[in-house]
Design a protein around this nucleic acid. Sequence first.
DNA 1: AAAAATTGCGGGACTTTTGGGGCAAATTGT
DNA 2: ACAATTTGCCCCAAAAGTCCCGCAATTTTT
Lengths: 224, 224
Amino acid sequence: MYRLLIVDDEIGIREVIKKYAVFEGYEVEEASDGMEVVRICKEKTFDLIIMDIMMPELDGFSACREIRRFCSTPVIMLSARGEEYDKIHGFELGIDDYVVKPFSPKELMMRIAAVIKRSQAQEPHPQKEILSFEGLKVDFTGRLVYVDGQKVDMSPKEYDLFFYLVKNRGIALTREKLISDVWGYDFFGDDRTLDTHIKLLRKSLGKYSRFIVTLRGVGYRFEE
Amino acid sequence: MYRLLIVDDEIGIREVIKKYAVFEGYEVEEASDGMEVVRICKEKTFDLIIMDIMMPELDGFSACREIRRFCSTPVIMLSARGEEYDKIHGFELGIDDYVVKPFSPKELMMRIAAVIKRSQAQEPHPQKEILSFEGLKVDFTGRLVYVDGQKVDMSPKEYDLFFYLVKNRGIALTREKLISDVWGYDFFGDDRTLDTHIKLLRKSLGKYSRFIVTLRGVGYRFEE
DNA sequence: AAAAATTGCGGGACTTTTGGGGCAAATTGT
DNA sequence: ACAATTTGCCCCAAAAGTCCCGCAATTTTT
């Protein structure tokens, strides 16, 4: 459940956005001018602020600047047409998106989703998924493989095959299953293709090639 | 490798300091008067500036004041004897140390080392988010990129792509993800557009282009 | 022990993907 | 409105990757 703060001096605009946002499953709060936003932001947290530029007392930009002094909540700015100069000004202030009035609520919702997704994705620096087998290290996040600390270059297929074997380590995988899962069900190629790639893969793994065990008449398995 | 900027109108003085500094392992650039320093500092970054007070056009204090308007590089001032009043004046301007001519190069080197050590210790500038990869510096706060201290001009898209790659360094990013996150969910353009921007970006990064690794059939990754 | 089946491996033709130059459209600044 | 920059697209050549072939090596079956 994401929390939005909608800021506009026109209640009509706020109501429209709120209606759509609630429908999309957001929790919504409202404010009617810049001073109020700053005050509210000091007391509560939001996942996103949607704010009009033109407001009495304190305008959107000034409010944004104030808010940036103590938090980094993403902001989408709303503005009337012809405030193009402000657009650049706004992005410098750390504004995440910009919607021109009159806007389609549908589009605004898409932008809200996009900005939230973006900020959420960046926040917690994605934990890396890394596995080690003796001196063999596999970083799934970075698509990297290390043999005794030395980075190994793998071709796409090689990595895909390796990835599949490691993900299913300890499991006997038939040739048919490997081909159909790594190459795709629609692969009609030669049966020897798999051998070829196993060959390349073993070469890349050097002394750890023994982790890939041949199961005669069946397929292969990655040893745990 | 620390970068020094030596500023004095007498080439002889510059030469002596440079000789010792290079011997100590510093990378050195020179300037001969205040105006030049300010100009250079807008284009490049240094870890320390060694500047004479008495110079034509723009004196050391004025230059320092100018520089302080946009950066906080430490400064060591050089001066002839009898400029004691200025000494205090100088410290107010954020001058880190003060050496009286004639000085022993050996002593100057010690002071240089001391000031750099001190400033590096304080560095982790609370506000600024800066990352370095060898001679490649990325300042997210200022939206600036430096290659060996030289500021690099990038177009907006170039910055966006670069920042996204760096923010997600070490992570294999697919073409689809890059396009959708950098260009936006609503971009339906050509797939080759990404290549073009990677091309431009690599050009901008010069010798550090190798940090952007091609993952054939997948996308790209910024090396950690 | 020989034959049959299966896998390993080097070589090389063929395919896919990417890099880079060039250019036009779009955007931005003057 | 004009000039400059930025952006997106196309094309081609180069690079990288994929796949197949043939034969050797190994294991299993007869």
